[in-house]
């Protein structure tokens, strides 16, 4: 039973869904709430734990749904390891007669490794840039008073409401006029203006006690020092969560890279693999490309799973 309580507190912090009615609460309060939730968990009455038959039924149901959920991943991996043309069902799903020929095709071509590099650049620069910019802005919005602060903050936040598709075309026109089509900066720069990130940073930093900064100021620390030595370490949790999400968004982004990256050399993995699909490349090669693109995100998920699930639960951040 101790295992059970541990799992519950790990995975499902109390509900702090950021709807308009109920803004996200601070991380500190969240921790306190979670501790409380953990204690409550110990008192689950026997009756609420369900009957044996109920448990079996639940197990079977969950098992079936889980199998259906991972089936595409399984098929993706197995078919990518088959010789070209092995697409018949169900024969080709059996895990033998495997060959890595599709992978040597994919990794041996110039394209896929280049796309991998592009995706890494887009994702890593995107994460670092977004985190730095939103931390700076979030700190200022939360702890500094300056004229127009509220108006500026709410106008930032209102941008969450404007769908991406309204701004996409003018953004493209702007990037095109600035000669940014088919360049890294044209790809990355617009993605750094992230309203959600600024909002979450501000909410988090607002929850930090002022005394921490005041104390440093009295000790004669400069603003730069305060930001680097105090703010940044304190906001590590939100940076981890936000960083994981921004990474996911960039890695999986499709429409913008599709529009901006025109030459084969400037594609990201998603755009490149979509183009492979359209070019009648054999299925095993396309899927090998998909696996290559999926493995890093899978690894990131394994490592950052806690931040992802907590992030969703605590802030309703979009997956």
């Amino acid at each position: 039973m101790s295992l059970d309580t541990h799992e519950v507190t790990e995975i499902t912090p109390p509900p702090i869904v950021a709807t308009e009615d109920e803004p996200a609460r601070s991380r500190l309060r969240l921790r306190r709430d979670r501790r409380r939730a953990g204690r409550e968990q110990d008192t689950v009455p026997y009756a609420l734990r369900g009957t044996r038959r109920g448990k079996v039924l639940r197990g079977v149901l969950l098992g079936v749904v889980a199998l259906a959920t991972i089936f595409p991943f399984y098929a993706m991996v197995v078919l990518s390891l088959k010789p070209s043309g092995a697409v018949e069902f169900p024969g080709s799903l059996l895990p033998w007669n495997l060959t890595t020929s599709a992978y040597s095709d994919v990794l041996g071509s110039q394209d896929v490794p280049q796309w991998l590099i592009n995706t890494l650049i887009y994702s890593i620069v995107g994460v670092l840039g977004t985190l730095l910019l939103s931390a700076l802005a979030g700190y200022a919005f939360a702890k500094k008073r300056f004229p127009g602060r509220e108006a500026m903050f709410w106008s930032f936040l209102s941008m969450v409401m404007v769908p991406y598709h309204v701004t996409m075309i003018p953004t493209f026109v702007l990037i095109a006029k600035m000669n940014g089509v088919d360049t890294y900066w044209g790809l990355i720069l617009p993605s750094l203006a992230n309203a959600q990130a600024v909002f979450l940073m501000r909410q988090f930093i607002q929850g930090l006690p002022d005394e921490l900064f005041e104390a440093a100021k009295i000790d004669g620390a400069s603003e730069f020092q305060i930001f680097v030595r105090i703010v940044l370490p304190l906001i590590k949790p939100i940076m981890a969560t936000l960083g994981t999400f921004v990474f996911l968004w960039h890695w999986n982004d499709f429409l913008w890279p599709l529009i901006v990256g025109q030459s084969t050399d400037m594609r990201t993995l998603t755009v490149g693999i979509a183009s492979l699909q359209q070019q009648n490349v054999p299925l095993n090669v396309v899927l090998a490309g998909s696996v290559v693109a999926f493995v890093p995100i899978f690894m990131a998920y394994l490592v950052g799973q806690r931040y992802v699930t907590e992030g969703v639960a605590a802030t309703g951040i979009k997956g």
């Binding site: 940014g180 890294y184 400069s222 020092q225």
Partner: peptide, 30 residues
């Protein structure tokens, strides 16, 4: 007396961020 150097250092980070974005723009140079 510390205000000046402090301000300079305070400017440093946003400046760095701006430089980063501009630099990104430049090095992508067409």
């Amino acid at each position: 007396r510390n205000i000046r150097p402090r301000t300079v250092r305070a400017i440093a980070l946003p400046a760095l961020a701006t430089a980063l974005t501009v630099g990104l723009a430049a090095c992508g140079g067409s």
